[in-house]
Amino acid sequence: MSDNYKIRIEDATKIFTVLGRDNPQDKRKRRMKVRKMKVVALNKLNLTVSPQEVVLIIGPSGSGKSTLIRCINRLEDLTSGSIWIDDICVTDPSVDIRRVREEAGMVFQSFNLFFHLNALANVALAPIVVKGMPRDEAHHRARELLKRVGLADKEDSYPSQLSGGQQQRVAIARALAMNPHIMMFDEPTSALDPEMIKEVLDVMLLLAKEGMTMLVVSHEMGFARAAANRVIFMDEGEIIEEGPPDKLF
């Protein structure tokens, strides 16, 4: 294992091709020409994350925060540049991307729990299907994880029966079930009511204290102060500002 970094991002560039108008403000042209346009989501971005570091990424919407972490586990492909996790080159087409995804757990803004499975099955599914873990063992571990996120009594509940905060905590447990070395959070509290934000942040704080390497896209300043080692401010696909949380605010 390489000594100095957990994640290394070099010259990462991501260009989306979207259909759009040249100038949406121009209302005089009635027949608007719709053409393919290029949107630069990441612009030659460099970033190194040390082991056990907690990095908070902030920035206006459309600044490429989500794209960045989605590129790390290849839910999106970079246009150019490279990303390394330990000494595996994630962006190398020949690398087994599923192994990388097992390494890096991901939590989404909209939870994305599997609607047809209850909380326990949600957490236990990936170990059973991907790692071939025996069902009993996977369920046992899933129960422990649910207990860790404070939902020991909710294992039989379906996602629709859980509150947003509870769903997000199940989603965290689900990601942890694969024993990842890195956890990535894509605006984990943006879809939650204020009173539920705390319960999710508490779980994240616990993870940070246990030494998990974390990449968090969020605007929760309280979490930044309590847990983040570094805050990154992004705009237009570039890192504008970075530093320890108390310095940046």
Binding site: L75, E102, F108, A126, V130
Partner: peptide
């Protein structure tokens, strides 16, 4: 079936075909 379901499955390390079988198709059935 919402797009996030496939993404969540992929992010957990499932292959596309396994995600289809275990996540997408059971929800499609309903």
């Amino acid at each position: 079936v919402p797009k996030g379901q496939m993404e969540a499955a992929l992010a957990l390390g499932l292959s596309r075909s396994r995600a289809m079988r275990h996540i997408i198709l059971p929800q499609t059935l309903r």
